[in-house]
Structure formats: C-alpha cells, structure tokens
C-alpha cells in the first residue's frame, strides 16, 4: 500500500484510527502494570484493548503477541486462576478475545488465531469446591481435567467448554453449544447442547462428497 493512500485513509476517518491508537496505549500500559506488580502474567507487546481486562489469581497466565480484546455486550476478557499450579496459555498471532471468561484450576491451552464471542471456559464443573460436604454423589466429578483448543478455532456466542474436552485445528463451534468430556476432530463444525456429533466442514461446503 502506498504511503499517500494510508495518509488519505487516516484523514478520511480520523476517529477510528484515534481509537486504535488509544487501544494500543491502554494495552501497553496494562503490560507495564503486569511487569511491575503481577509477575505471574506475561503478555506479548501489541496488546490491543478496547474493553475491560480482568485477570486475577495466583496462577500463571501467558498471552502471546498481537491479541485484541473487543468489548462485547458488557464484559471484556476475564481470566481467574484458583491455585498456584494452574496455567492458562493463549497463543498469539491475532487472537480476537471478546467477552471470554476463563476459570482455571489446572491447565487450559488455547492455540493461535482464535476468535471468540461471549463464552465460558471452565476447568472443573463447579468452580467453588472449597466445601467437601457437597461431594456426596461422585467425587470424581469434582476433579479438574485439562482443556486443549487448537489453532484457528472460532467459538460462537454463549458456548460453554467444560472439563476434559479437546477441540482440533480449524474447528467451528456454533452458538449456545456445550462440550463436556468430548473430542472434536480437525476442521469440523459442532453444535448442540450437549454436542453429540460433529460434521466435517468440507462436506458441508460441498467440496467433498
């Protein structure tokens, strides 16, 4: 792109570019704040923040480069870790995180280039398991199991990802779907509450019969 045409774009819509500038400044201030006060959080440099970012807890949080947080409905990105051993890692390369809430006891991994709407990722069925008197039914339900999500995944609005679920690369999760102890193969579309079957996207598009 020519430099003159870039200049023309900025002149035509100055407010839009001003917003981007402010978002980058906000993100870099947040990175500085984490470097100084919260050493357990590591964020890559171009961190573009339009909404709120709310990271709490003693565990490790690693966010890659070039992530953007978009303000969605009323919440931005919120990550909470409940123990010292818990690790949340989000790959970089243009993740678009809007309204994502992550609650982690043991381990949650997200790949590169993920797109999310308002959705929930939980490591255990019940977050507040301080009280042992509730474990009457089955104590194995209260253990946390790691979650792995591959690269280039699109999570729809209001979907829930619950312990023991694995999602492959290039997948799409439709809105309001719930996964619990289930696996989805690469390049598939999954839907339903709970997710029962998933279709390969190549077949849906009619590329392969």
């Amino acid at each position: 792109m020519n430099l003159w045409s870039k200049y023309k774009k900025v002149i035509n819509s100055p407010l839009y570019y001003f917003q981007i500038f402010i978002a980058i400044v906000k993100g870099s201030f947040y990175i500085l704040y984490c470097r100084i006060f919260k050493r357990n959080i590591k964020i890559g440099f171009p961190f573009i923040v339009y909404g709120n970012v709310n990271i709490k807890g003693p565990g490790k949080v690693i966010i890659g480069k070039k992530c953007t947080v978009v303000e969605n409905v009323f919440r931005g990105l919120s990550i909470t870790t409940f123990s010292n051993d818990s690790i949340v890692s989000i790959g970089g390369e243009g993740c678009l995180l809007g309204g994502l809430t992550i609650r982690c006891h043991s381990k949650i991994e997200l790949g590169n280039n993920i797109m999310t709407a308002v959705s929930l990722i939980q490591d255990t069925l019940f977050v507040t398991n301080n009280n042992k008197s509730y474990t009457n039914y089955d104590s194995s339900l209260w253990k946390s199991e790691p979650i792995v999500i591959g690269n280039n995944v699109w999570l729809g609005g209001h979907c829930c990802i619950l312990p023991g679920s694995k999602i492959g690369d290039d997948c799409v999760l439709s809105a309001c779907s719930v996964i619990y102890k289930n696996e989805i193969n690469n390049y598939n579309l999954a839907s339903g509450n709970p997710v029962r079957r998933s279709l390969p996207i190549e077949r849906i598009l009619g590329l392969r019969k």
Partner: peptide, 9 residues
C-alpha cells in the same frame, strides 16, 4: 444427591 452440569436447562 443430583449434580447438574453447567449450561443446562
């Protein structure tokens, strides 16, 4: 003694 999984109606 019932457990109801998150996000169920």
């Amino acid at each position: 003694n019932v457990v109801i999984v998150p996000a169920s109606v």
